[in-house]
Simulated scan of single mutants.
Amino acid sequence: MTQPAPTITVETPLSDDMGAMIGELNTLLLTLSPPEACYHMTPEDMAGDATTVFVARVGGKAAACGALHRHDGGVAEVKRMYTRPAYQGHGIGSRILDEIVRLAECEGYSSIVLETGDQHPAAWRIYERAGFTRCGPVLDYPDSPYSVFYSRPLAASQETHQ
């Protein structure tokens, strides 16, 4: 039996099912990296104006999420990318990443960056297929053996952010 096609929409991170999914992500990350190397945004942090949260739903159930977090200086950041295990391997994470990149381009950002863990090869493949390349530390993240950093230039299509 095949799963229904996912729908991806912008949603609040403050719903119960989003809170549960973010909790799962935090638990997973703490099994892969020490707490000082985990840069979690809480659902409340994600609800601010600087962040847009994309949620993929399959049959109405939250299956995956990712967020665009805006910074000064024309830089956007990918945050909180997660696909629940039952939905992995179906391209949902890549589709969410595409939405994040598209929004950053539409809003005029010149580059998009991210920090991920050193134990996340599946995530690296998604980012690299989407045109991201490894780089040194980005934004205010410390240089850490537990972190892997990526960046990608964007073809800004509207206003430029200062």
Rank of each mutant, 00 (worst) to 15 (best):
S94Q: 14
V113G: 09
T31E: 08
P85F: 05
S94F: 01
E115F: 08
V138M: 09
T27C: 03
F54K: 13
D16N: 13
H71C: 11
C65M: 15
A63D: 01
E24F: 00
E115P: 04
R102P: 02
S151P: 00
S110A: 15
H120N: 11
F54A: 12
G19K: 15
S33E: 10
V101W: 01
L154D: 05
V10Q: 15
P142A: 06
A122Q: 14
P153N: 10
P6G: 05
E105C: 03
C38L: 03
G23K: 10
P13R: 11
P43V: 05
I8Y: 08
Q119S: 09
A20M: 06
M81A: 06
I126H: 06
T116G: 06
I100D: 12
I96T: 03
S157K: 15
G59M: 09
L32R: 14
H71D: 02
T12G: 09
P4E: 06
M21C: 10
E36C: 04
A123I: 00
A37F: 05
P85R: 06
G48I: 00
D118K: 07
G59Y: 09
P142W: 07
L154Y: 04
A122T: 07
T31I: 04
D72Y: 06
V58E: 11
E159K: 13
L103G: 05
T133G: 06
E107P: 07
L154E: 08
F54M: 11
A104V: 00
P43W: 07
R70E: 14
H161T: 03
G19H: 08
Q162A: 14
P13A: 14
R129C: 11
T31S: 11
A122L: 08
D98N: 12
R57E: 11
Y39F: 15
P43M: 09
A104N: 11
S144W: 11
P4Q: 05
G89D: 13
V148D: 09
Y141A: 07
C135M: 03
R152S: 09
G23L: 01
H90T: 12
F149V: 08
C106N: 15
C106P: 07
A64D: 01
A62H: 12
M1C: 04
R152P: 02
E128R: 10
G131D: 04
E11Y: 01
V75A: 10
Y39M: 01
I22N: 10
T2G: 11
L97S: 02
A47H: 13
A156K: 14
T52H: 14
R84N: 02
A67L: 06
A50K: 11
G74W: 09
F149R: 11
D98V: 00
T9Y: 03
P43Y: 04
S15N: 12
